[in-house]
């Protein structure tokens, strides 16, 4: 088990669709998971996500970050959230991953 920071982001899909992946690579974030089509309610009201366009839905992104890098990563997201909306949550968690030297085969 390793202690890491879990960074959870909700970013409007109109922004995320074409720009986010490039930004994550640019910032050296090499591991992340994305759930598309997140809907919910926020300051701009209910996000229905029911139109055939990138409006009213968001991407949910989860990143496991070494504690020492978290602040840098979060600062990169600050201007995006200020301009386009969304949220960023950071929590300290224990992470279990497959040992790189393991002999296990799946």
């Amino acid at each position: 088990m390793t202690t890491v920071d879990k960074i959870e982001l909700i970013i409007p899909s109109a922004y995320a669709q074409h720009r986010l992946i490039a930004k994550l690579d640019e910032w050296g974030i090499n591991g992340y998971s994305i759930i598309r089509e997140a809907i919910g309610k926020g300051r701009s009201g209910i996000q229905q996500g029911d139109l055939p366009a990138d409006v009213g839905r968001s991407w949910y992104i989860i990143i496991a970050s070494e504690t020492s890098r978290t602040k840098l990563i979060v600062e990169e997201f600050r201007p995006i959230i200020s301009r386009y909306g969304g949220i960023c949550l950071v929590t300290s968690v224990n992470m279990l991953i497959k040992d790189a030297n393991s002999e296990d085969r799946y």
């Binding site: 139109l51 366009a53 409006v55």
Partner: peptide, 26 residues
């Protein structure tokens, strides 16, 4: 428009209230 324009406005003019211009059109 309620497809192409809202998607573009969400990026270019995110300060605009999408809860107004999308329902007006749709």
């Amino acid at each position: 428009s309620y497809i192409a324009v809202p998607a573009a406005m969400r990026i270019a003019v995110p300060q605009a209230n999408a809860s107004l211009y999308v329902p007006m059109s749709l």
